[in-house]
Amino acid sequence: MKNKWLLFLIGLGMAVVVGFLSHFTFYTTGEDDTLQMHTWLGLTLAAILTLFIYTFLYKDNPLYKFAEHLLVGTSAGYYLVIYYHNSVKPNMIDQIVAGFQQIGHMRAEGTFNFVDSILTNAGIWAIVPGIFGFMILFRLSRKLSWLSRYSFGFYIGTAMGMYIPVGFQASIVEQIRGTIVHSAAVEPTPVFNLTYFGEFFSHPTWGGFVQAISGPLVIVGIFCTLMYFFFSKEHTGVFGAFSKVGIWFLMVGFGASFGATVMARISLLIGRMDFLINDWFRGLILPLFGGG
């Protein structure tokens, strides 16, 4: 409890200091390159919060928790505002207001009629998705949560209807085709192509070898991996041998994914360290002491 109050006070204090100091010019780094206080504070805060987050590598602590909660809170607030201004307001509120304004004009001009003012008034019909969206909030009520199912049903049905034809083509039909022919080539050639072996044996090169075995490897890999996921039969004998080969292919796939993940995570570390060293320390801190 004590920690919570301490974290709250640290956060409040930082917000007040940032708000107060952001109005002042801090120092100049060149003729026309005036560095504003809010830029300096923004970068310094980012640097401090980065260090707070990295303290977790030693062990969990209040500084890490503070930075983590700050990130979650600001992200939630940011996304709420973005979604409101990019979806709720333009697609619902503005439409409904415009719809009622149209009705108002028609009534004032004496041209109000049911078809033109209501049925073909797109703005008024924005109320319907608005009601559907509102019904999702009933998810929070145990008694009325069934109302949200209509909204989810509509949403999932629409999304599936949109995705299934194109998704099936992109992720299944094209992939099956890619197992049979090299569809990316200008003139598609069969994946299992014995002429590549002929070319390799007549002119043995590393590239020729890879080209010759890649097709059969794809076919064997797919066949054996599918065997592994066939659970209606016990994995013994010849069938078991195929499924074991399938496991090897899966392991190679997971290894590639793990390697790629390591590369991605290290890239993020490099990005943060680059920011700390070059943007913050060399760009802001050193000039303060006459260096840089």
């Binding site: 094209e174 890619g178 569809s183 990316a184 080539a185 790629a260 590369m263 991605a264």
Partner: peptide
Amino acid sequence: TAVMFADFYPYLQTGQMIGLLPGMK
């Protein structure tokens, strides 16, 4: 990102993407 590129290779191999830039590399 590097995390994603293994997932996108099938689209490259089937000609549904003209090319792929994987991560920092």
